[in-house]
Each structure stands twice: as structure tokens, then as C-alpha cells.
Amino acid sequence: MKRVQGFSLVELIISLVLGLVISGAIIQVLVSSSVTNTLNQAVSQVQESGRYITSRLTGEFYEIGRYDLITASVDDSVDTVSEAAFVQNNPVSLVGDFSANASLGSTQASSGANDQLVVSLLALEDCTGNKHGYAAGDEFHVVNRYFVSGTEFKCTGYDGRVLRGLKAQSVSPTTVTLLDNVSNFQLQYGVSDVAEDSNGQAITYVTADKLSALRAQNQQVVALRWGILLKSYQNQVQQTSAPTFALLNENAVTLDSAHYYQVFTKTLSLRNMKNFVRSIR
């Protein structure tokens, strides 16, 4: 009878080692693929959010300081000439501008905390879509407040006439969340030369705490520069090192390595304010 010879002990050990090596390589590829996929998803999500908020803010900020007495259908229940002067001279609202809400205004936060922007314009509705009881098609003095609460970037819309004490409030202000996973929001303001010498261009960029003194010298905000730091939803990105970012005038900060972060910045000329400054030379 013919004997059947099996594998030797050495052959079995070699086979096991080769199997372990191959299995380890496959696992490594799968892990690497999973990490790459997680990072790609995080990058895609942050970039999509960044494109959205940049586009939205650009569209809304372009209208800052707008007040058209010629072609717009303005609700005329108040003195619109006086209102136009207020909006055009105070496109970026500061603390103390509104008698009915003296604490409302653009602010520069300390130690890298989030800034706040408050602006005036003529519009059909505020940043939340609230018409504040005005008739369809009628424009009115809108005041929008942009700020960060927790990790949510929000906007609250007001009736500027109520804030100025010109009418009683009939519709309460509303707040909407424009974007979440926001780590920081910073602003700088492009200021013109004194009105009689200005061509409507920004000659310097300052923070909100400098605006009151410049306004007193008849210098006007004609541009906005903003920076917004976004982070991913995913908390297992596993970057090799913790990223460091600096937004505009703020000091650099080091963040965690478990999220993907990206800064989005833009400088925008306020066309309505440039035209206004040029018109009063």
C-alpha cells in the first residue's frame, strides 16, 4: 500500500507565516482606505459648507447700505429721506446706534472669540425671510445681525424702524441658523478716507472697536473682509499633527487633529457705500 506523505512541520509554519503576512497587508490596505475615505468625506463636507456660506454672505453683504428712493417701492409710513440718511451713514451699525436696543451693534471680541456684525439696508425682508408685517412688494429698513452661538453661525433680522423708536413692534424678530460646525468668525472693515477727499476706496482695514472714532472723522465703511473657520462633522480624521490657523488679525491657534478644518476668507467692496461716498465729495 502506497504511503501518503503530508506537510512537514516546517512547511506548515512557513504557510502560516505567509498567511499572516498576506492577511496583515490586506488589513493595512483596508484600514488605509477607510482613513482616506473618512478624510475625503470630511474635506468634501467642509468645502461644500464653505462654498455655501461664502456665496450667501457675498449676496447679502453686497446690499449693505442700500437705500434707493428712486426705483424702490419703499413703505412711506416714516420719513424716508431721514431713514435713507441714517442707513447710508450707518451701514455697519455700532453699539448705541438704536435707541430701542442700545446694546445692539457690531463688536470686536477679545482673545480670538467670535466677532459680531450688524448691518442696515433697504430690503423686502430680513435675513430670515421675515417681512415684519409690511405689505408684499414694499421695502423697509432691515437690520441683520450675524453671529456665532456655540458652533452655529446665525442671523437675526430686525425692523430698523422699531429699533430706532419710529414705530411699535408688531412682529417679533426671528433667528435662523445659517451653518453649523463653525469654529470661528472674524471681521475687518475697509474704511475710506474722509468723505470730501475719498474716491470710495478702502485705505485701511480695522476692527469694529475702531469704527466709532473713524465715523466721527467722516470716514465710511466701504468694504468688508471676513474669515470663517469650519470643521468637519467627522471626529476620526486622524491627521498626523494638530493643525494651526490664524484668522485675519487674530493670533494663531492650534486645534485638535480629530477633525478636518479649513479657513474661508473674502474681501468684498460694498458697492452701495462706494457710490454713496463718491456722491458726497
Rank of each mutant, 00 (worst) to 15 (best):
T107R: 04
L30H: 14
G129N: 09
T107E: 05
S8C: 09
V87C: 04
G112T: 04
T107W: 08
E60G: 03
R66D: 07
I22L: 15
S33A: 13
V4P: 08
S49L: 12
V92S: 00
V17N: 01
N90G: 12
S120R: 09
L117W: 04
S99Q: 09
S77N: 09
G112C: 10
S82D: 11
G137P: 02
N40H: 15
S106K: 01
V119H: 00
A84D: 07
G19Q: 12
S23K: 04
R56D: 15
I53Q: 01
A135K: 07
F61C: 01
R56S: 15
S106D: 01
Q5K: 09
L69A: 04
V21E: 06
V95P: 00
Q47R: 11
L20D: 01
S120F: 02
E83S: 11
G6R: 11
T38A: 13
V35A: 11
A25R: 07
V81D: 09
D79I: 06
L30R: 15
A102Y: 10
G50H: 12
I26W: 06
S73I: 02
A136P: 02
D126K: 04
K2V: 09
V87W: 06
R51S: 06
G59R: 11
T128K: 02
K2W: 06
T71D: 13
S32T: 14
S120A: 13
S33M: 09
L57M: 13
E83N: 07
Q45L: 11
S8A: 04
Q5H: 12
I64W: 05
N130E: 02
Q41K: 14
S120Q: 13
V35F: 12
G50E: 03
S99G: 08
